[in-house]
Design a protein around this nucleic acid. Structure first.
Lengths: 210, 210
DNA sequence: TAAGATACAGACAGCCTGTATGTAAATCAA
DNA sequence: TTGATTTACATACAGGCTGTCTGTATCTTA
């Protein structure tokens, strides 16, 4: 019977890499979320991950690259949450799905990880373009596809999908921060849900002739 | 006839303070805009302002406080631009004024100062709450008052104004970044203007009964 | 004019990032 | 299996940057 930790039991190189990378990402996430990217030293991260700085700088080009990896896992988790909530409700109508996704998004952002890492520090650390490109593959795509489906079904008048997706995401991000930072988050959530529904409903009818 | 610079000509203390503060803010603004808060050292700032680090740390508690001062001047300038554009057009109807303000906002964000300092670095450096509180007194108030006026005039159905203001600002911020970072900003601006009009028009009619 | 407050100058300590050099483990070739 | 090579990791080091501290000049006030 081999011992648990003292004997490394001959791991392959890919296994070693994956293990340290995951340890670093897992350890860095709560630190970044709690103190912000700039206020967390690499020493604190590697200590929490039980790894040395040498290992970290071997696996990641720099501190920013590690942050990007953390951001991606956070974003992927949120996207998964949203999909799960929408599919669990068995909603197929795109506009209703969007309203549901908006609620799920507000709830996901109750966790400080999403707010600080994705919304606050993300654009500043990675630059807006890289940040948006990273989120593009997750939540952005989700909303984009829902909007496109809504247009296909005629619930939303045909128009360019990408700019509208950006607008909705921008509004949702601000909404999440407003709710989370509010002195009374529950009341703020109710308020914001109504406002978001209002915004979405406004899209579902053709604008009145001016 | 006294010499120009070598003789300080006995300035009062408030004058000295104001002069160095303004020199620092003026010098720091383009540096922060071009390289981002984290990538600009205080040495570079004081060199550009022809001042020493001692003077800077006497006038500002830390680098963050200087950044806040810069952010405030940028934000104030943008708010002034918006007001000017709307009043110059002689538009009194609140909804039309909002559409106009949105265009002016996109144009203001063509300048990288606004994007990098206000939109990208602002929330990260100051924290979202402090950032929002700073902008509250400028552009936020503007949009808030326009929305309230639109409700008073009946063009927008009565509802809580503050959450809706947040949504519109969040959408506008994202819109500005999308346009500015687009490979074809002119086309993006046209796209985004249409999308923003769409969003605003959607608010002006009561949502259809579901 | 003397005493105190305010504005500034320059040096110093501490922290933190990224790199460079050295070592152990794993993969590959023969 | 063994020797060579690549990959993963450890540690020491250099450079930069922030904030503080002590000392000096300028201004204000009694």
């Amino acid at each position: 019977m081999p011992s648990t930790t003292p004997k490394p039991t001959r791991r392959s190189q890919p296994e070693r890499s994956a293990a340290t990378r995951e340890a670093l990402v897992t350890a860095a996430r709560p630190l970044f979320a709690a103190h912000g990217f700039a206020n967390v030293g690499t020493e604190a991260i590697v200590a929490a991950a039980a790894v040395t700085r040498g290992a970290m700088y071997h696996q990641f080009a720099d501190k920013t690259a590690l942050f990007a990896a953390v951001l991606e896992t956070v974003e992927a988790g949120v996207a998964e949450q949203l999909v799960e909530r929408v599919t669990a409700a068995g909603v197929t109508e795109p506009v209703a799905a969007m309203r549901l996704a908006a609620r799920a998004w507000l709830d996901a952002c109750a966790e400080p990880d999403v707010r600080r890492i994705v919304l606050v520090d993300g654009p500043s650390v990675l630059g807006w373009a890289r940040w948006r490109a990273l989120c593009q593959r997750y939540v952005f795509r989700l909303v984009h596809d829902l909007l496109a489906a809504a247009m296909d079904s005629g619930r939303v008048p045909r128009q360019p999908v990408v700019p509208l997706t950006h607008l909705l995401l921008g509004a949702s991000d601000e909404a999440a921060l407003y709710v989370a930072e509010s002195p009374d988050p529950d009341a703020a959530r109710t308020e914001m849900t109504a406002a978001l529904d209002h915004l979405i409903n406004g899209l579902t009818v053709p604008p009145p002739a001016e």
